[in-house]
Simulated assay, not measured.
Amino acid sequence: MVEAIGDLEREIDELDNEIDISKEDSELAAETARRVELLYDVLSGLREQQALIIEADIERYRLWLDGVSRAIRKHGLDELTGDRDEVERYCSTMEKLVDGGRHERVINNDRFTLATIDNKLRAVDEKMRRSLDHEAHTRMCLGVYESLLDEIHESVAALSEENPRRTSHASDLRTVKQHLKDATAALDRDANEKAAVEARTALAGAQMLHYVLVRDRSDQRVAERLAAIIQDTGLNVDCDVSDCEASGDVTTLINGMAEAIGGEVKLSKEARLRKLLSEHDGDVIRTAEATDFDLPSILDHLEQLYSDDQIDKIVIEFST
Rank of each mutant, 00 (worst) to 15 (best):
residue 1 M to H: 09
residue 6 G to I: 12
residue 7 D to I: 12
residue 11 E to C: 06
residue 16 D to I: 06
residue 26 S to E: 12
residue 28 L to R: 14
residue 29 A to Y: 03
residue 29 A to H: 06
residue 33 A to D: 03
residue 35 R to W: 04
residue 35 R to C: 02
residue 35 R to N: 12
residue 40 Y to M: 02
residue 47 R to F: 07
residue 49 Q to V: 00
residue 53 I to W: 05
residue 53 I to E: 08
residue 55 E to G: 11
residue 55 E to A: 15
residue 60 R to N: 14
residue 61 Y to E: 15
residue 61 Y to M: 13
residue 67 G to Y: 06
residue 68 V to Y: 01
residue 69 S to A: 13
residue 75 H to E: 15
residue 76 G to W: 01
residue 76 G to V: 07
residue 78 D to T: 15
residue 79 E to P: 00
residue 79 E to N: 08
residue 80 L to F: 09
residue 83 D to Y: 05
residue 86 E to R: 07
residue 93 T to A: 06
residue 94 M to D: 02
residue 97 L to A: 10
residue 100 G to T: 02
residue 102 R to T: 05
residue 103 H to D: 08
residue 104 E to I: 14
residue 110 D to Y: 06
residue 111 R to L: 12
residue 112 F to A: 00
residue 116 T to F: 06
residue 119 N to L: 12
residue 123 A to Q: 10
residue 125 D to L: 11
residue 126 E to L: 10
residue 129 R to F: 07
residue 129 R to H: 02
residue 133 D to T: 04
residue 133 D to E: 07
residue 135 E to H: 02
residue 137 H to A: 13
residue 138 T to M: 06
residue 139 R to N: 11
residue 148 L to T: 10
residue 152 I to M: 05
residue 155 S to E: 05
residue 159 L to Q: 03
residue 161 E to W: 10
residue 162 E to S: 10
residue 164 P to T: 09
residue 164 P to W: 06
residue 165 R to P: 01
residue 168 S to W: 09
residue 169 H to G: 01
residue 172 D to H: 12
residue 175 T to R: 07
residue 176 V to H: 01
residue 178 Q to D: 15
residue 197 V to W: 07
residue 203 L to N: 06
residue 207 Q to W: 01
residue 210 H to W: 13
residue 212 V to W: 01
residue 212 V to P: 00
residue 216 D to A: 01
residue 219 D to E: 02
residue 220 Q to V: 04
residue 227 A to C: 10
residue 227 A to P: 09
residue 228 A to Q: 14
residue 232 D to R: 09
residue 234 G to L: 05
residue 237 V to T: 11
residue 239 C to D: 00
residue 239 C to W: 05
residue 240 D to M: 06
residue 245 E to I: 03
residue 247 S to H: 04
residue 248 G to N: 01
residue 250 V to F: 10
residue 250 V to T: 15
residue 258 A to E: 03
residue 260 A to Q: 04
residue 260 A to S: 13
residue 263 G to S: 01
residue 264 E to M: 14
residue 269 K to N: 15
residue 271 A to Q: 11
residue 278 S to N: 11
residue 283 D to G: 02
residue 286 R to N: 02
residue 288 A to I: 05
residue 291 T to K: 09
residue 291 T to E: 04
residue 292 D to P: 08
residue 297 S to V: 14
residue 301 H to G: 11
residue 304 Q to P: 04
residue 306 Y to M: 11
residue 309 D to G: 00
residue 315 V to M: 09
residue 320 T to W: 13
